[in-house]
Design a protein around this nucleic acid. Structure first.
Lengths: 129, 129
DNA sequence: TGAATATATGAACAGTTATTCATATAATAA
DNA sequence: TTATTATATGAATAACTGTTCATATATTCA
């Protein structure tokens, strides 16, 4: 699935073709086929925005390989319990983390492997600075 | 590289181990090793926040397989030229897109394959609703 | 040269977001 | 029961973000 993306390289024919400023702009650019519809664009943006905060990235980082309760997350990432709880709700809503209740503790883990993939790819990107 | 992430599954030993509420909390939880430092957390968050807007995701979508000038992007995603230009600057700063000037046109493409990977993985995630 | 086209940018404003504080719920221990 | 611990949540506020509008720069064309 990831390989598909890489194999779909930009075709030189596409690169050469541009209609910017042409007299007849009634025909759409072929790139219009790739345009996300409103719903998908918003959903995708919400997912990425959920990862768009330093503290939330720290929370996700400590959950990479360990199941943790709220209190432990708070002490590890040095945030108040309240702030962590608020952030976890957002992460839960975006299905980035899931929770499991045991007694008075609530344990959190990453929801699925996509989260780890996004984290890893993002890390590779910023390291290539 | 992506396979590595998936192979690093949560170990059951880790799941069982938690020190929440224990008397001696001087020793750090093993998850502390995974904690991002401040700089990396901020950099990673900025990258994801750059993708955390519906219009920016639309811009990235039309650039997936085609090099486009600002005017064409604006007409495809239905934004004003000014708004697109502002957004492209942010995307350029996060190295999500790169530009090439030719005459009075400036052509944009995605900067590297990580962008396509993030887009694709994110799309898979939101489709699994 | 002047007009038109393509892009970029600063300022301002409206909308959003992350934190804190106070408090609520829930489970356990004494 | 009362006290303690763990977590969640609403309200308020300060900080941030995305758009618009006006305008600037740059290139091409007549």
């Amino acid at each position: 699935m990831l390989a598909d993306v890489q194999s779909e390289e930009i075709q030189s024919e596409d690169v050469q073709t541009h209609t910017c400023g042409e007299a007849d702009e009634r025909q759409q650019h072929p790139a219009a086929n790739d345009l996300l519809d409103d719903d998908a664009a918003v959903d995708l943006a919400e997912l990425f925005r959920a990862m768009g905060d330093g503290n939330r990235m720290k929370i996700i980082s400590v959950l990479m390989h360990h199941e943790l309760c709220v209190h432990d997350i708070a002490s590890l990432v040095d945030m108040t319990q309240s702030a962590v709880s608020h952030q976890l709700r957002g992460l839960r809503q975006m299905r980035l983390v899931k929770s499991r209740k045991e007694g008075r503790h609530v344990y959190y883990t990453l929801d699925d492997h996509h989260v780890q993939q996004l984290f890893q790819v993002g890390l590779e990107h910023i390291k290539g600075k």
